[in-house]
Design a protein around this nucleic acid. Structure first.
Lengths: 139, 139
DNA sequence: ATATGTGCAAAATTTTTGCAATACT
DNA sequence: AGTATTGCAAAAATTTTGCACATAT
């Protein structure tokens, strides 16, 4: 966890109790969590929802956390374990929302070609797979 | 536009003024639009925001429209021109939110492999590219 | 010491819902 | 005629903000 302290300090941001707590929750449950879910996971009375919203925004800016839209109107976040964790994609169960990380990424070449053809620069992408995990499949 | 009437009728849903208006707006501006944006695009006093929310939900269920999350907390929608429009991806300018449709999709093989390895079924995916369009690039 | 961050309460935003009146088929 | 849908107003739900106090560096 020392790494996070480091990265916060570098931006003259502080490693506070609430931020640590949030990071811990995101690390335990590895699913994308909404602000409210993080808040419920913390000891009652010991955390403030507004603080969690603010912290998650900050952590997103610092790229310690990644916003993740599941398609209902709620922002969820997952921990990015390493600073430049490279890059991976997700496989998400439509039913139980289990998330599997896929570590390969084969989109890079396509990205280069698209950049060339469109004139766009600074390309990034987001790729997510959805399906039914084995446990959720009808028998 | 007759096609939409057809598809609504088949589900015993009605082709009403507001729905037509919404579809027209989505067809003219081809960008992903939020409920409020659709509402502002319509003659003032002639449309109700709640109706637009309800209509967009319905149209999404009927797969005449597709929900599109740009990452702020606002649901946007684009028209799906054909019933099974196949499948394409988007290239979105981070600055001006211009959207370009990419009609090729090269993810299908990967999808098959992931399904095989993970045991997931019914795989679908979502792939979006982000970048700076030529007009938005710093000189 | 000082800038950054928290907690609380209040506000702003986005989305949903109830119900009587209206419009489509 | 009969059901689906609208419009309005009110409520939920989510997210943001102001400000005095607290905390990390």
């Amino acid at each position: 966890m020392g790494d996070f302290a480091e990265r916060l300090r570098r931006q003259s941001r502080k490693l506070t109790g609430p931020r640590l707590a949030i990071l811990r929750v995101l690390r335990e449950r590895r699913q994308p969590l909404s602000s409210k879910e993080v808040w419920s996971a913390l000891p009652p009375g010991e955390s403030d929802l507004a603080t969690i919203y603010r912290s998650l925004h900050l952590l997103e800016d610092l790229e310690m956390v990644r916003r993740f839209d599941l398609g209902d109107g709620v922002a969820r976040y997952v921990l990015l374990d390493e600073p430049d964790d490279g890059h991976h994609h997700h496989l998400i169960c439509r039913q139980c929302a289990e998330v599997i990380e896929l570590d390969e990424c084969f989109v890079e070449q396509a990205e280069r070609q698209i950049a060339r053809q469109s004139g766009y620069t600074g390309l990034t992408h987001r790729l997510e797979f959805f399906g039914l995990c084995p446990k959720c499949q009808p028998v």
